[in-house]
Simulated assay, not measured.
Amino acid sequence: MRIDPGSDALLVVDLQHDFLPGGALGVAEGDRIVEPLARLAPAFSTVVATQDWHPPGHVSFASTHPGREPYASIALSQGPQELWPDHCVRGTRGAALHPALPDAAVTLVLRKGTRREVDSYSAFRENVGPDGRRPSTGLGAWLSARGVRRLFLGGLARDFCVRVSAVDAAVEGFEVVVLDDLTRAVFPERRDEVDRELAAAGARLAVSQDLIR
């Protein structure tokens, strides 16, 4: 699979300290994808890095809901909400992108989850908010304006932000390729469920070794 720098883009999802082992919401083996993604990024003319950038008291924090524990789910007016340890609080080291990702290769840093009352897994749209809507981040229009037609994804976590970003990218009309070896999941045992959702959206799975620069 040959990379076309003119029409292909790389989306690096949430490669942040808090999602790496030892972080507030560390994903097992997440550190193993850092260097491969950093080496791959310069092969693309367009590289987008997403960054969770939560205010204190964010709706996704278990600590915001007294008596609730991380990794549970609760029902809110807008629908179910997964609860997590406090993570990627704006301005903290945990929210910073891993320094191995080369600044020179990153075209755009997209911060998401910035509103206290709305979670945001996807790079393209926020989760459903109290008003029942999923506001666009504008990323789809930005990529299209740059001539991007195919989007390669890697990062954290496979079963949440990578999954939802991939599905939304397909809805936006992009050809979507998830680089399976450059992702890791919070709940690896849910792999089959995630794979079915990706396939239903038309997203393909590949490995980075298949790419020809």
Rank of each mutant, 00 (worst) to 15 (best):
M1D: 06
R2N: 14
L10V: 11
V12Q: 05
D18I: 10
P21M: 09
G22C: 09
G23W: 03
A24N: 06
G30A: 12
D31E: 14
R32I: 01
I33K: 04
V34C: 10
V34N: 07
V34L: 14
P36T: 04
L37H: 05
R39L: 15
R39H: 12
R39S: 12
L40E: 09
L40Q: 08
V47L: 06
V47D: 03
A49R: 01
D52F: 03
H54Y: 02
P56N: 07
P56V: 11
G57V: 07
V59T: 14
F61I: 13
F61Y: 12
S73A: 15
S73D: 10
A75R: 14
L76Y: 00
Q78R: 13
G79E: 11
G79M: 12
W84N: 09
W84C: 08
D86L: 02
R90N: 02
G91W: 03
R93F: 09
R93G: 10
G94D: 08
G94Q: 03
A104N: 05
A105M: 06
T107H: 11
T107E: 07
L108P: 00
V109R: 14
V109N: 03
R111V: 05
R111F: 01
R111N: 02
K112G: 09
G113T: 06
R115N: 08
E117H: 12
E117S: 14
D119E: 13
A123T: 05
F124D: 13
F124S: 13
E126C: 12
V128H: 02
G129M: 10
R134A: 14
R134Y: 13
S136F: 01
T137F: 10
G138Q: 10
L139D: 03
A141H: 08
L143G: 05
R149H: 12
F152K: 00
F152I: 05
L153R: 02
G155D: 08
R158W: 12
F160K: 01
A170N: 04
F174V: 04
F174N: 04
V176D: 06
L179R: 06
D180R: 12
D181N: 06
D181M: 06
D181P: 03
L182Q: 03
F187I: 15
P188E: 11
E189W: 10
D192I: 00
E193V: 12
E193M: 07
D195L: 15
D195W: 02
R196H: 07
R196M: 09
R196V: 11
A199S: 14
A201T: 07
G202S: 04
R204Q: 15
L205Y: 08
L205P: 01
